[in-house]
Design a binder for these strands. Structure first.
Lengths: 204, 204, 204, 204
DNA sequence: CATGAATGAGAGTTCATTCAT
DNA sequence: CATGAATGAACTCTCATTCAT
């Protein structure tokens, strides 16, 4: 879907060519897979060679598929982000209680992103790897917010942006030494602060 | 305070001696000032040459005063952190309402550290530039917590560590584009979640 | 020997693969060659850039092949030393007279190492570039010593270590301005002092 | 003697000036003393700052007295060398046996220079810190040689240059790890090779 | 089209020498 | 005339990117 090159060769393309393309696709996939793992473990600052090594391709192949390290990073994160958001959608759809859907989202942010340094960094800094991702995420959060709002569970005045920022801010705690055992408390606190129990208006 | 050499010349100290040292002190100060600014703007990864350029000294001078980049970074952050913590103490002492003292602290974290990338990074990652700083900060937060607790304002089970982590986590929002106008809302939400109004126990 | 990749292509190895590696090998060899020459001329303190320049490669290439200057130095010296020791073995094997074998070794030390500052420095200071080299050299000298001793030609009490030290000490003379024409005399003197003609015991 | 500036102020020079000169002399002496110690311990490559520190003067003062590190090195070594040669003269004069005078000289070279890295380096490389020193040393050795020759103790054909080179070559052994206990043996060997017992001609 | 070797601009750091005080 | 702070070129080494094979 994201890979127009993978389109099935409708005509009788020569096997050699098709083999090449298949190879290329496999390489491309291997690179993204490796990059995702490496970026997750070591963050975005990691040496590109490490990715090449892990994916089993040469530097030239890597740069043929991705014109720059940043491009590869972006694509890898986009993919991760998308998958993550997809799962978030599924979970939310499977959850009837609006508030539980919201808190489930927070939990997912903190459990999933905790193990992906580069992804988490992008989430914290800009809300996601690309503006498109951010938009989708925002839309999803907006839906969650609306569900809670309609159910009268959400504090008056809480915006989608608030929820996005709040989830991002909690992210970092997880990376903190010892944070693995503490984020749940902070999440509880923050979510409680979001409940309609609080009637004080938020500052503009 | 950090500069015994700069001790106020009580009597007519020899100009020659003082002049030399004064210049060196000015350079040292210029370096720290520049470093602080540069680290604040660009983070800890910035090129040392940029600091030398901004402070108007050569590399040798910089390294005469600070034996390594890390030393300079640490010193700059320590200074910033200490100044910040001092102000925090003063504010807290001048505030009668315990809760307002606590929220004032959060506000100060977010207003002051927001504009210093390197400082904020250290605060988020480890709680401060050095273990000593962290200890002092923790002690200060602990005092704030106790005041609120005694006054029955703080949610049961909230630890000092929780407050430290929470303040750190909120920090990052400020750096977010647009975060300058949103952190106050998140702070309110989080603080409300900390209030004794909430009787649900926190997860261990 | 050190280059399994350079193994002779017995069959029609694919040109592409071999071409690449061959080039790399050529570069590697060029670097060692240049390094050997440069170290020989200027000693171990020389700037790495000079080696890169002389070998016609960039710094990156140099560091791709040798992770540090010290590694390059060590490898270069090991190679030189090994080649030299190999030749020494051959000469000794081809020489029937034990005493001539010993004096031939001294001669070889002084003629070969004389023109390699870094190699000579290592020989003088530690007996060779690595402990392994030193051991091999010591073993070789020990064999020479035994041959002479069995033939009753060597002064009583002369140890392998004495011979090693003596050869090393003579080395430096060669580098002296004018030393090129004088070392043969010193060698003769020293060797004569080693002959069994002298029956006085050596100091412990 | 080497310090024309130390000439006694014959006229009634103002005290201030005389005090200055005295101070300057004291500084100069302190610098040489410190430099000598530092060069002896660490060799000629040592940081100039170490010398300034040890002599208790500033860098400016150091460079006022000695326009470059090399000048200071040369002067320090000259002084040491001269003192050493003076002692050598005295010893030789006090020794009746010509051969003992010669071997005493070798012994002095190896005991004295062993503890002075920079001095020894210069002795090994060029025969002394300056050409003048080398000449004086050569002259002294020549006298020793003549005494031995006249007494019929020295091998025919041994030149002054041979003796100088030989003493220099033995020097280095002392610095070798373990060399402290081995140089006496090598010295004995070499000296024995110099004795008139050997009638074979030396190579030209 | 894949390979991985080559590139070279910087990174942090040192030190002989100069110069303002 | 002393001081020691300041200078900056040079050092070893790294890494995103290019290019010959």
């Amino acid at each position: 879907m994201r890979e127009p090159r993978a389109a099935a060769p409708t005509a009788g393309a020569p096997t050699a060519t098709r083999g090449r393309r298949a190879d290329a696709e496999r390489n491309r996939a291997a690179i993204i897979t490796a990059a995702t793992a490496v970026f997750a473990e070591h963050g975005a600052e990691v040496d590109v060679r490490e990715i090449a090594r892990r994916s089993g391709v040469g530097m030239g192949t890597l740069y043929r598929h991705f014109p720059s390290k940043e491009d590869l990073l972006r694509l890898s994160l986009e993919q991760e982000f998308t998958a993550w958001l997809t799962e978030a959608h599924e979970r939310a759809a499977a959850t009837q209680d609006p508030w539980q859907a919201l808190s489930g989202f927070f939990e997912q942010v903190l459990t999933t992103q905790a193990h992906n340094r580069a992804l988490m960094d992008s989430y914290v800094q800009t809300g996601g790897p690309t503006e498109a991702c951010v938009q989708k995420c925002r839309a999803f959060i907006d839906a969650l917010r609306e569900r809670c709002e309609r159910a009268g569970l959400l504090r008056r005045g809480v915006s989608t942006e608030d929820l996005l920022s709040l989830s991002a801010s909690l992210c970092q705690v997880v990376q903190t030494p010892g944070g693995q055992h503490r984020w749940r408390r902070l999440m509880t606190i923050s979510l409680d602060g979001l409940s309609s129990r609080h009637r004080e208006p938020l500052p503009s």
